[in-house]
């Protein structure tokens, strides 16, 4: 259990099936505190389902999912898990299109989740300062008053990452952050994530090999719902099984 105890995320033997199709097949994965981990794998390997399980959207049929070494996540719902400190970015950028960039971030700010509490909430110097800081980090200060719907695709991705940061989570789950980004945006995103990884644990799911190489972190390869290989990108990319099932010859 010491592995579990020292981890920030711990998945053991997690299985999920949908109508007979095994989306996750006895998946086991350990993420250490402060670690950044890249997850790659072909379509249908179970990457998104794994995130669903961790964030409480999907309940596993069997297996153990623990956070921070002890907390069992399988009985909690999305909001409870989010409050524990697990933030998630969706594959498709999901921000509140009809609100400004600022408002988006302000809604994500940690604290104030109750109904009455948020009814009576007023922006404070502190919260404004924190918003400014976040805007700086995600490089959106210049468009702070703009509606989220007017942002470019890449900017929406950053805004969503910013909202994650505003939650002040311990772990960030980031699903395909650079899908559909231009090269320079991709590069900036990698920089942003590395910066974030300095004081957060981050799990990144990505297809883009150049981006993963850019991140330069430990890589886990998923296939058919379980772990195929683990190690640095250089190690896994010469792994026979990985080449066969994913990278191709």
């Amino acid at each position: 259990m010491s592995v579990a105890a020292n981890s920030i995320l711990y998945l053991d033997g997690v299985t999920v099936s949908f109508d007979g199709f095994r989306a996750l097949n006895s998946l086991s994965l350990v993420v250490e505190p402060g670690e950044m981990r890249a997850i790659i794998g072909p379509n249908g390997a179970g990457k998104t389902t794994m995130m669903d399980v961790i964030t409480g959207k999907t309940r596993p049929d069997e297996g153990d999912v623990r956070f921070d070494g002890k907390i069992d996540l399988t009985n909690l719902d999305e909001a409870e898990i989010a409050e524990l400190g697990i933030g998630r970015k969706f594959q498709k950028p999901t921000v509140f299109e009809h609100q400004t960039v600022e408002e988006n971030l302000s809604l994500a700010l940690a604290g104030t989740r109750g109904v009455l509490e948020s009814f009576l909430w007023f922006a404070s110097a502190e919260s404004n300062e924190r918003t400014d800081e976040l805007l700086e980090t995600i490089r959106l200060t210049s468009v702070r008053k703009a509606l989220a719907s007017s942002l470019s695709h890449g900017q929406k991705q950053w805004l969503e990452i910013g909202m994650l940061l505003a939650q002040d989570p311990k772990v960030l789950l980031v699903d395909e952050p650079v899908a559909g980004m231009t090269d320079s945006e991709t590069e900036q995103t990698a920089k942003l994530l590395r910066e974030i990884a300095k004081d957060h644990s981050v799990v990144v799911v990505e297809h883009d090999m150049a981006f993963v190489r850019d991140l330069d972190v430990k890589v886990t390869v998923l296939a058919e719902g379980s772990v195929l290989a683990e190690g640095s990108l250089d190690v896994v990319s010469v792994n026979e099984k990985v080449i066969e099932s994913y990278l191709g010859r």
């Binding site: 949908f18 109508d19 199709f21 989306a23 998104t48 389902t49 669903d52």
Partner: peptide, 8 residues
Amino acid sequence: ALKGRGIE
């Protein structure tokens, strides 16, 4: 009911 990721 159909179950699965897609329908969500």
